[in-house]
Simulated scan of single mutants.
Amino acid sequence: MWQRIRHITRGLLFIPWFLSLTAVLAPVAIAMSLVTRSGDAAHRLGRRWSRWLLAAAGVEVEVTGREHLAGLPGGLVIAANHASQLDILALFVALPIQFRFVAKKELFHLPLLGPAMRFTGYIPIDRSGGRSAVESLNRAAEVVRSGVAVLIFPEGTRSPDGRLRPFKPGGVLLARKAGTPVLPVAISGSHRCLPRGSILVRPGRIRVRLLPPVDPVGPGGPKGKDALTRELHQAILSGLDPGNRPA
């Protein structure tokens, strides 16, 4: 019982810790981006922010497969499954490279955090589609071609039960447009630490597995959108723990 009380207390304290740490570091990230004209320093600060938040919550990140980054260009597409708000923090810790992520536009309206994301170079997207979504895709392709990786969640939103969902085509369209490989990343355990709809973070372990890259071009030329989407889905599925695989 006492252990459960400690876990609940720790989870409740995570919220003020998150708010206070973000309030301190977000203006610093904005200032860094304005001074350097680059989001690189702010991204490194984001990695520290993520480590401190996860440590405060008692969440460990176990990383395997970093060797699959060897030989890849700086500009590539990173595709990961999405089961929890903690996925972004875990990816900051797990990926030893500069990257920018595509996120729903509503996050950019949050006080402090939203402007920090925008100044650092993260890319808002309108999930309702239309011209705005196409413009976001074009901007993401420009970032990749400039030599910086772009992270996408091809499911489009967080899984309600932690299990891998079908993929939307935006991620593979980005890879084809930018002409770059896709690095699949499988995240397991984050849903147990912070399920969708909950604000109480639970101590635990998140496993992040980097997998062999998927090439959008095959022996016969560019792969079809549907075939590439299936290949990417299968790659991430292969790296997930059983509890995160479709039922």
Score class of each variant (00 low, 15 high):
residue 103 A to E: 12
residue 132 S to C: 04
residue 68 H to V: 04
residue 18 F to T: 09
residue 118 R to H: 11
residue 148 V to E: 14
residue 106 E to F: 09
residue 181 P to C: 08
residue 41 A to T: 13
residue 15 I to W: 15
residue 212 P to L: 08
residue 177 K to D: 07
residue 115 P to W: 03
residue 82 H to C: 13
residue 57 A to L: 02
residue 121 G to H: 08
residue 41 A to V: 13
residue 11 G to F: 03
residue 49 W to M: 04
residue 77 V to I: 13
residue 49 W to Y: 10
residue 6 R to C: 12
residue 155 E to K: 06
residue 139 R to D: 15
residue 196 R to V: 01
residue 20 S to L: 12
residue 71 G to L: 03
residue 118 R to Q: 10
residue 16 P to H: 09
residue 135 E to C: 00
residue 63 V to M: 03
residue 75 G to Q: 08
residue 19 L to Q: 07
residue 90 A to L: 02
residue 9 T to K: 03
residue 48 R to F: 10
residue 74 G to F: 05
residue 222 P to I: 02
residue 168 K to A: 13
residue 3 Q to P: 01
residue 222 P to T: 04
residue 45 L to V: 15
residue 164 L to N: 08
residue 75 G to N: 11
residue 98 Q to N: 11
residue 31 A to R: 07
residue 206 I to F: 04
residue 110 L to N: 08
residue 38 S to Q: 12
residue 28 V to P: 06
residue 2 W to K: 13
residue 201 V to P: 08
residue 154 P to D: 14
residue 187 I to S: 12
residue 55 A to D: 10
residue 235 A to Y: 05
residue 79 A to Y: 03
residue 44 R to T: 13
residue 122 Y to N: 15
residue 31 A to K: 00
residue 173 L to C: 00
residue 160 P to W: 03
residue 8 I to W: 12
residue 112 L to G: 07
residue 194 L to E: 04
residue 121 G to P: 05
residue 176 R to L: 08
residue 179 G to F: 01
residue 23 A to P: 06
residue 81 N to F: 06
residue 122 Y to L: 06
residue 170 G to E: 04
residue 203 P to D: 14
residue 93 V to I: 05
residue 55 A to N: 10
residue 105 K to Q: 15
residue 163 R to Q: 14
residue 59 V to C: 05
residue 187 I to W: 07
residue 69 L to R: 04
residue 33 S to P: 00
residue 148 V to K: 04
residue 106 E to H: 13
residue 34 L to W: 07
residue 98 Q to G: 09
residue 181 P to M: 07
residue 231 E to W: 00
residue 15 I to P: 05
residue 201 V to Q: 11
